[in-house]
Computed example of a mutant assay.
Amino acid sequence: MSQFQFSLWYNSSYAGSHRNIGYNVWDIGDERIGGTGQGGGAQPLLWCDNGAGAGTGVKNNAASAQNRHASYRAGVYYNSGYKGIVDILAPKSSWFQLKNAYNNNASFAWI
């Protein structure tokens, strides 16, 4: 099984482009692998595949989500740094549409 057990989608109902995530992300708009910049400037997570939103930034553009992890809850936060209001997905659950972080997603954490 993939270690990337959480997914966000660009549109509601798991439509459009997606992004798989397997680790906590402090700031979806500037994800620095290993804590340091990889060539300078912001390094945003981008949407994958060829659906709606492909190649654009994930931050503040997610509408639906799926948590495939069997043990951990997943938190999608309104602000960077795991702050602000949060949508919490139970293990093995999916949301057709985020509530608190709908198109206002800035960080992600396993809870």
Rank of each mutant, 00 (worst) to 15 (best):
residue 43 Q to N: 12
residue 70 A to P: 15
residue 74 A to I: 09
residue 56 T to W: 06
residue 3 Q to R: 10
residue 77 Y to L: 05
residue 51 G to K: 00
residue 47 W to I: 02
residue 80 S to L: 07
residue 65 A to R: 04
residue 101 A to Y: 05
residue 111 I to C: 13
residue 49 D to T: 09
residue 98 L to M: 13
residue 3 Q to W: 10
residue 109 A to T: 09
residue 26 W to G: 00
residue 99 K to H: 08
residue 95 W to D: 04
residue 107 S to A: 11
residue 14 Y to Q: 15
residue 24 N to A: 10
residue 62 A to H: 03
residue 85 I to D: 15
residue 51 G to Q: 03
residue 102 Y to F: 13
residue 111 I to N: 08
residue 73 R to I: 03
residue 96 F to V: 06
residue 27 D to P: 01
residue 92 K to Q: 15
residue 9 W to T: 00
residue 65 A to Y: 09
residue 80 S to W: 12
residue 35 G to E: 08
residue 25 V to I: 15
residue 68 R to H: 05
residue 38 Q to F: 09
residue 40 G to P: 04
residue 90 A to T: 13
residue 3 Q to E: 13
residue 30 D to W: 06
residue 94 S to N: 09
residue 19 R to S: 05
residue 93 S to W: 02
residue 67 N to C: 00
residue 53 G to Q: 09
residue 81 G to D: 12
residue 74 A to H: 04
residue 15 A to Q: 15
residue 13 S to V: 11
residue 41 G to N: 08
residue 16 G to S: 02
residue 25 V to R: 00
residue 36 T to N: 12
residue 49 D to I: 02
residue 76 V to D: 03
residue 62 A to F: 03
residue 21 I to V: 12
residue 87 D to M: 06
residue 68 R to G: 00
residue 48 C to A: 13
residue 57 G to L: 09
residue 82 Y to W: 14
residue 97 Q to Y: 01
residue 21 I to G: 00
residue 82 Y to I: 05
residue 11 N to I: 02
residue 96 F to G: 13
residue 43 Q to W: 04
residue 41 G to P: 14
residue 40 G to R: 08
residue 12 S to Y: 02
residue 12 S to D: 15
residue 52 A to W: 05
residue 40 G to S: 03
residue 16 G to T: 03
residue 6 F to W: 07
residue 87 D to F: 07
residue 32 R to K: 15
residue 23 Y to N: 10
residue 39 G to E: 03
residue 23 Y to D: 10
residue 88 I to E: 11
residue 25 V to P: 01
residue 11 N to H: 15
residue 8 L to T: 09
residue 78 Y to L: 10
residue 108 F to W: 05
residue 62 A to I: 11
residue 93 S to A: 11
residue 54 A to W: 06
residue 46 L to S: 05
residue 103 N to I: 06
residue 37 G to Q: 09
residue 59 K to H: 13
residue 85 I to R: 15
residue 90 A to H: 13
residue 27 D to V: 02
residue 26 W to F: 15
residue 44 P to T: 04
residue 52 A to F: 10
residue 94 S to F: 03
residue 87 D to C: 05
residue 70 A to T: 13
residue 22 G to H: 09
residue 52 A to Q: 13
residue 15 A to N: 09
residue 29 G to N: 14
residue 24 N to D: 15
residue 15 A to C: 04
residue 97 Q to I: 03
residue 45 L to W: 07
